[in-house]
Structure formats: C-alpha cells, structure tokens
Design a protein around this nucleic acid. Structure first.
Length: 107
DNA sequence: AAGGTGACCGGCC
DNA sequence: TGGCCGGCCACCT
C-alpha cells in the first residue's frame, strides 16, 4: 500500500536479492506501467538518501550502469555490484541475463 | 495551471 | 550497422 508511485518503485527495488540486478523496464512492468520505465528512473533519482534502496542493482535493459553517473565518484556503482559478486566491465554487467532478477508482478 | 524533464524502451530511418 | 526519434507517465518549477 504505497502512497506514492515512488514508494512502489522503492518497494520493488528493495526486493532485489543481493547479487542480483534488474532493469528499469522490469520494475515498471512489475508496477503495471511498463511504459513508464522513465518514471522508474526518476524515482531512483529521488532515492538518494534512502540506503534501503539498492539503486546500484538497477540498470537499463542492456545491463549498462546508465545511472552510475548519479552515484558518488565515478565507479561506486560498479564497486557495489562487484562487491556482490557481479562482474562489471566498462559499465557493462557481464552475463547480465544470468544475474537478472525479475520482480514479481503486482498489479 | 501549464510546460518541461527524466538513471528508459522500442521502433524506425 | 548504428543512430535518431517518439511515446509514455508522474514529479518539479
């Protein structure tokens, strides 16, 4: 029962298991608004300050750390992912499909 | 109140 | 083969 759309996004993001990643589109689809993938990214933008939100586990559909620019430093996002056992090369997640995690569809 | 924007996605040229 | 454009929805000024 989330008050805002943001909270919904956060709720899904928080469900991302450690060592797994997902895409903005996947989250959007899980929320029932597959076309609002952009909104998901927007919500993540507002997730700053919420350590409960593993935003670093959220990447675009091709497994590229498109939002790493929003993290501190230049490769913090990559460091966090590698810390969870996810190999990242040049902002690209290796075997993205293997680490991909599909959020539960909750309409 | 209206317009602009965005860490995207998918299709088209 | 790669780059460009539009759509889509909700938040921000």
């Amino acid at each position: 029962m989330e008050e805002n759309f943001f909270e919904r996004v956060y709720a899904v993001a928080r469900q991302i298991p450690e060592g797994k990643v997902t895409s903005y589109g996947a989250i959007a689809k899980a929320l029932g608004t597959a076309r609002s993938a952009r909104m998901v990214g927007w919500a993540m933008n507002a997730c700053h300050g919420r350590e409960d939100i593993p935003a670093h586990r959220v990447v675009n559909r091709i497994g590229v750390l498109s939002g790493k620019h929003h993290f501190e430093g230049t490769n913090l996002m990559q460091q966090l992912l590698e810390n969870e056992g996810i190999e990242v090369i040049d902002n690209q997640i290796v075997d993205f499909e293997k680490h991909f995690w599909q959020p539960e569809i909750s309409q």
